[in-house]
Amino acid sequence: MADDVRLRRAQDGDFASIVALTNKAYRETGPGQSWSVEDLIEGPRLTDETLREDLAAAPDAQLMIWRDGADEHLGHVWLEPQGDGAWFLGLLAVRPDLQDRKLGRRLLAAAEAHAQAEGATRIAITVLAQRETLVAWYERRGYRRTGVTKPWPYHESRLGAPTRSDLYFVVLERAI
C-alpha cells in the first residue's frame, strides 16, 4: 500500500501549500470539508510562522510531502525521532476532496515505512480525545491507547482557539 506513495522532505517552496492544506483538512467546514475536520477549534491550525518555528525547534524532525506525478500536493506528515526506536507522527493531512481514494491510510502506511527505514520500531501519535471517530480510525490501523493523556495548551493560541474547555489529547502507539 505504501509502495505507490513517494514521500520527500518538504522544502521551503512547499511550505505555503502545506499550510493551506493543513488548514483545509483540519479546520475548513462547509461543503467538501474533511470527515476529520477539527470543529472543536476555530482559527488556523498552522501558519507559515508557526511551521517555521516548529521546524527550528525540532531539528531532527522530518516534514514529508507527498506529490503525485503531476506535482499536485496530495498530503504531508511530520515525523520526529524521540529516541529508543520511538518516533512521533503528527500533522498528517491529505486533500479532503480526494479522501475517498483512501489517501490517509496510504500516507500513514508510507510514513510508518519511512520511519521504520530510519530505525523506528514504534510510532506515537496524539489525537484530541473528543474526536472519537478519528481515534477509532487510528485504532483500526493498529494504534492502541497508551493510557497517557496530554492537556490542550489553553495558555497559547498557536493551534487555534478551542470552543470548549474540556479538550485534551490521548496518546496512541503502534509497533512497526
Rank of each mutant, 00 (worst) to 15 (best):
K102R: 15
K150M: 03
Y154N: 11
T22C: 15
V170M: 04
A113F: 05
L172M: 10
P96I: 03
L107Y: 14
D100F: 03
A86W: 11
W87C: 04
T50C: 00
R67P: 06
T121V: 07
A175M: 00
L107K: 11
L92T: 02
A110H: 11
A161Y: 13
R140S: 14
V94G: 02
A175E: 10
G75W: 07
D166I: 08
R122C: 06
D60W: 04
G30S: 12
L7G: 06
T133E: 15
E118K: 13
A129L: 01
R105D: 06
H114P: 07
R6G: 04
H73L: 14
L107E: 04
A136E: 14
T22L: 06
R6H: 11
R6S: 11
P81E: 01
E38H: 14
L98Q: 11
D100M: 03
E156K: 05
V5Y: 12
R45T: 01
A115H: 07
S34E: 09
A86R: 14
Q62S: 11
P59G: 09
A110S: 10
D71Q: 10
A113R: 12
L74F: 03
G13S: 15
D12G: 12
S17W: 01
W137G: 07
V148A: 08
A129P: 10
R9E: 15
D48I: 08
A10F: 03
P153L: 03
S157N: 10
A136C: 05
R106T: 09
V171L: 14
D166Q: 01
H155C: 02
L74S: 05
Y143W: 15
Y26S: 01
F15Y: 15
A124E: 15
W66M: 05
T121E: 12
E72M: 08
A57F: 03
S165R: 12
P81F: 01
L107W: 07
R6V: 13
L63Q: 15
L98E: 13
A115P: 05
A10E: 06
G69E: 12
E72Y: 02
L63E: 14
K150C: 00
G104E: 14
I125M: 09
R8S: 04
W78Y: 10
W78G: 06
D68N: 10
